[in-house]
């Protein structure tokens, strides 16, 4: 019973944060909604006996990604006239919700064919993840490290100033 109520509180946080993120006009409010959604997601990981993932979620998604997006939003410092004007935003949101609803039902029905009893026998700690990561998952781990390096180099190259001469976007 405690688990169920915790789940509903965390799900409320996650869904409320993500809806705030999609709906709000100012990007900084969106980033706050995203922050709340990521915190709720970390709580859900902890509810799933996944200690290490909860910590990684808080460190990477909350500590790095959200803070980086907030820093970027404040660096860009777009005024109201530079934000896109979306006069029919809510109409589009409702319309696309109707469009996406069949996809939601499809995903849910497909996921329900998977085994659904939560065993909860083993707490996934850093030791368990480390054992799996450095025995069976070495090759994907190396690929992800190369991907991160490439993303870092790419971000530095894209962020340089003299790229402005090449008009990427009219």
């Amino acid at each position: 019973m405690l688990e169920l109520s915790l789940f509903f509180i965390l799900a409320l946080f996650t869904l409320g944060g993500s809806i705030t993120m999609v709906v709000s006009f100012q990007p900084l409010f969106s980033a706050f909604g995203f922050l709340i959604a990521m915190l709720g997601l970390a709580g859900l990981f902890a509810l799933l006996n996944n200690q290490f993932l909860a910590l990684a979620q808080i460190m990477v998604s909350v500590g790095a990604v959200v803070i980086l997006s907030m820093l970027t939003i404040m660096t860009v410092n777009a005024q109201v006239q530079n934000l896109p004007k979306e006069p029919h935003k809510f109409i589009w949101l409702i319309l696309s919700s109707f469009l996406v609803a069949p996809i939601t039902v499809l995903i849910y029905t497909q996921l329900n064919t998977l085994p659904a009893t939560l065993k909860g026998a083993e707490t996934i700690t850093a030791k368990v993840i480390g054992n799996a990561l450095f025995t069976d998952w070495v090759f994907p781990f190396e690929i992800v490290s190369i991907l991160l390096l490439t993303a870092m180099v790419g971000a530095i190259v894209i962020g340089r100033k003299h790229l402005l001469d090449t008009k990427a976007c009219s």
Binding site: P27, S30, I73, S97
Partner: peptide, 15 residues
């Protein structure tokens, strides 16, 4: 689905 709705219907790059 909420993420998909955001990608489809919003024009703000951050969103």
């Amino acid at each position: 689905s909420i993420g998909l709705v955001g990608v489809i219907s919003r024009r703000n790059l951050f969103v």
